[in-house]
Nucleic acid binder design. Structure first.
Lengths: 362, 362
DNA sequence: CGACCCATTTACAACGTTATATACAACGAT
DNA sequence: ATCGTTGTATATAACGTTGTAAATGGGTCG
């Protein structure tokens, strides 16, 4: 087929032609490299030349071809964020913040959903598909520290969330034990004595669950309260449904006699699920059962009642994670893996301290 | 596992060397292009050669360099998904589905958050930053059809959600009018007569709001009910807070006498906000006020009461959007812009038809 | 006045991939 | 036997960018 790129007028000389450095250079009357220098802010360029080049760039509406740039530079400018599920509010909020933080470094974020499955998480650990990503921010759910140590891909990685301590990679975490202790102590401070916990997990990978359970136990011990195994509910996942079921089990188990008078849920979704069960069965929250969660997701701020929770500084978390990753990508800090703690605070809302919700309006 | 694939011992011959086609070719004893052919599934390759190459690929753990491939091919394999905010559940769910749908076409999705601001949305419409994306799936909030017509970038684009009809680009939508009518008719069918609507908007860009309002009016007309302007509440945005405030205004306005006995909210977040206000003021839902939303987000399935809503087929929506975009990217269908409607259905839950929630458990 | 230095600019060669055009073999059909 | 024809494989030239080394040109210093 005749593709007369030459000069023939016809339907327009540059009908389908992506402008490149070459075109800008020709128009500005300088070399290709000089244009490249201007684009990249190289210092040793005469103001005169720079102006001329910039004019040409604007005139042609030139945009650098990132594929070419990346090929040449050996980097892609893209980092991946791998989370279990985007439609879990905590991860959605996190994703948003990570994207914002990465933008400040000129990085673009590619979001990958693992579904929390081991298989998919392993794929992610081993260089996602065949993509060229410069770094990985990873919030694994099913992988153990050993799995991660075994990874062969050498893309820099920062672990997110609260898992795998002293593992093979940098990570940014909240102080789970302390936070869980605080939440539990708050419930105790309300005068509650039969305090249940929802969110324990058996899986060896469930480090978060273990840490939060530890904090819960520490609080009980500190207050001189007995630890009652029957008040601890395990869950399979951290969704609303799991929380609802666990709460039902707790209520069923405490045959009439003495239901828990407070519940600490290891995340907000569990708490929202538990709340649903409590209200369904006619328990008044917080009057009869006080309820606290963990994560401070949007939803918790608008339920009825609103949810008391541990609020990790998600923004700090995201910024630290990106900073750490950028540092690794730059090649510095080759040695020790770092572990960074971010702040958290207890946010007290109606589910533990709120005014009573009127039962009838008249 | 000792991987002395090469021969020299030392610290390894390929310590920091990214393996490319060349290396595989050398090992397999074939030309570079042949390896490329195998990688790309080109048909005319002897089973023998193919096997040898595949062996070499595995041995060297070769991964194609996407930057190079994209440079050569002139495409990036990346499409962008631009939504207002990731932590709005509807968009998070959508994002997840779009990512899944894109994966089936071998495409990677870059998610962009516009915050719903005009400025940012305009940037997105004009080729995001300087990134090389092959296509754009865009759910604008502030942009008008005129804004979009004015765009100079020629990256293929598909509009998502329910806006800008007969605009300058393909789009995938739910049938807002019909859906809103159905929801309202459902409320009417329950015997309700004073049916409020929350979610009207003044902005010229608010096409969705207009369409859903139309549906609401059609239903009233169809049932021979009078349209009462005082029962229609406008909102600034579609968040929980707006719904809560709007509901409060509606209740305040209907001085004691006759509050609405049903509310149709133009999305689920508004409904959740409204629900919060209703419960706070002691109204029984659905006994005194029935409540319906739109979107069918997760949250609505676990509130108390659970939320009746219009459930758009989000998966179909995502798949259609990606398919349409792929088609555009392939260069086909250059002419007319298409408008594709996806299915929806009314999901009836407790907020309109549920069993009564017991107020006390004993 | 020559030697040197610095700022500015440039030509050229990569980066790893795929498209194009060809070479080579094996095979039927003339 | 000769000529296509088809199936395989290859060499070479791009794609658009940036790093390297070298060229240019005006100074300044001995």
């Amino acid at each position: 087929m005749g593709d007369q790129t030459g000069s023939t007028s016809a339907t327009g000389p540059e009908e389908r032609h992506r402008v490149g450095l070459k075109d800008v250079a020709r128009l500005a009357g300088v070399s290709v490299k000089t244009v490249s220098n201007v684009v990249n802010g190289y210092v040793h360029v005469t103001p005169r030349t720079r102006a001329r080049v910039e004019q040409a760039i604007k005139e042609l509406n030139y945009r650098p071809n990132l594929s070419a740039r990346n090929l040449r530079r050996g980097r892609s400018g893209i980092i991946a964020l791998a989370v279990p599920e985007l439609d879990i509010p905590y991860f959605a909020e996190l994703a948003r913040l990570v994207v914002d933080a990465a933008e400040k470094h000129g990085l673009t974020v590619l979001i990958d959903q693992t579904g929390g499955t081991r298989e998919r998480e392993q794929q992610v650990a081993e260089g996602i598909r065949d993509h060229m990503i410069d770094g990985l921010i990873f919030s694994p759910l099913a992988l153990t520290a050993d799995d991660l140590s075994a990874r062969t891909d050498d893309t820099p990685m920062v672990l997110l969330g609260e898992r795998i301590h002293h593992g093979p990679a940098d990570h940014v975490v909240v102080h789970n034990v302390a936070a869980a202790r605080e939440a539990t102590l708050h419930l105790i401070g309300l005068g509650r004595r039969r305090i249940a916990a929802i969110g324990a997990q058996d899986s060896p990978a469930a480090e978060t669950a273990r840490l939060r359970l530890t904090g819960y136990h520490q609080a009980l011990a500190q207050a001189g309260l007995p630890a009652d195994e029957r008040l601890i509910a395990s869950v399979e996942a951290y969704h609303r449904a799991d929380g609802a079921r666990a709460m039902a089990r707790l209520l069923d188990a405490s045959d009439a006699g003495d239901p828990p008078d407070a519940v600490f849920c290891f995340n907000d979704l569990l708490a929202l699920g538990a709340l649903r069960t409590l209200l369904e069965r006619g328990y008044a929250v917080p009057e009869e059962v006080a309820l606290a969660g963990f994560d401070d997701i949007e939803d918790g701020r608008y339920g009825t009642p609103t949810l008391t929770t541990i609020s990790p500084d998600k923004q700090q978390l995201s910024i630290q994670a990106v900073d750490l990753l950028v540092e690794r990508m730059s090649g510095a800090t080759l040695g020790a893996t770092q572990e960074i703690f971010v702040d958290h605070r207890l946010v007290i809302r109606e589910s533990t301290a709120g005014r009573t919700v009127p039962l009838r309006h008249r």
